[in-house]
């Protein structure tokens, strides 16, 4: 039998560690989209005092290297401080797995980005972000590109489901071109909140559905 991956990649692929969601996660992130091939969700629980990652879970819509990297990265980050975890690189994750094919770099780097985004999300929520760049409509749009319509698996901006974004004195107004009773309206709303609310200068997010 000859497989295209190392033993360790196959091991993590077959038995991924720390799969799922954390009920009351402190930091959350979703990276990638089905349109680009792979998607990873990372959620963390952080000890407020020590700033250590107490728990971490991931989910993956992706190929073997995506799943294996998601799995190994959760093992590597668990117990580390946020500062330490931020520094985990794709190279380190790949080395830990006994190497990944170069052509698969883009599928596996998503997990690393997912971890960093989840940490960033925690820092934003807890006012730990030192970078105080004022939020712009472009920044909001960029973040909405990571919100998926679970049905099509495509992002809201790419599929032109965002009708309008307004930003005035810390209040962000977002119009979504979907009916209010759309089966995924609620989960989409939650995701938008999650992504935008944590920005340091956003006081309120109001989302309207009108498809």
């Amino acid at each position: 039998m000859k497989f295209p991956y190392s033993e360790k990649v196959l091991e993590h692929f077959r038995h991924p560690r720390n799969v799922g969601k954390i009920e009351d996660a402190d930091g959350k992130a979703m990276e990638g989209s089905p349109a680009c091939g792979d998607m990873v969700s990372v959620q963390i629980k952080v000890d407020e005092k020590t700033k250590r990652i107490q728990d971490i879970k991931f989910e993956s819509y992706g190929c073997a290297s995506n799943i294996a990297t998601g799995s190994i990265i959760t093992e590597m980050a668990k117990g580390k401080t946020l500062e330490e975890a931020k520094k985990i690189s794709w190279k380190q994750a790949s080395d830990e797995l006994g190497g990944l094919p170069a052509i698969k770099a883009h599928c596996s780097v998503l997990a690393v980005e997912g971890l960093r985004s989840a940490i960033r999300n925690y820092e934003e929520k807890h006012g730990l972000v030192t970078d105080k760049t004022p939020t712009t409509i472009e920044i909001i749009e960029k973040r909405l590109r990571k919100v998926m319509n679970p049905l099509s698996g495509l992002d809201l901006v790419g599929t032109k489901l965002i009708k309008k974004i307004e930003l005035k004195e810390g209040v962000a107004k977002i119009d979504v071109d979907l009916p209010e009773n759309h089966q995924f309206a609620n989960s989409i709303k939650e995701e938008i909140m999650e992504k935008i609310e944590s920005l340091h200068d956003i006081k309120k997010v109001s989302i309207t559905f009108n498809g």
């Binding site: 497989f3 295209p4 991956y5 196959l10 077959r14 992706g62 190929c63 073997a64 698996g153």
Partner: peptide, 14 residues
């Protein structure tokens, strides 16, 4: 739906 083909083929291969 909701899963990726290479993951399926690799599992099937195993």
């Amino acid at each position: 739906h909701f899963i990726e083909g290479e993951s399926i083929t690799l599992h099937l291969d195993m």
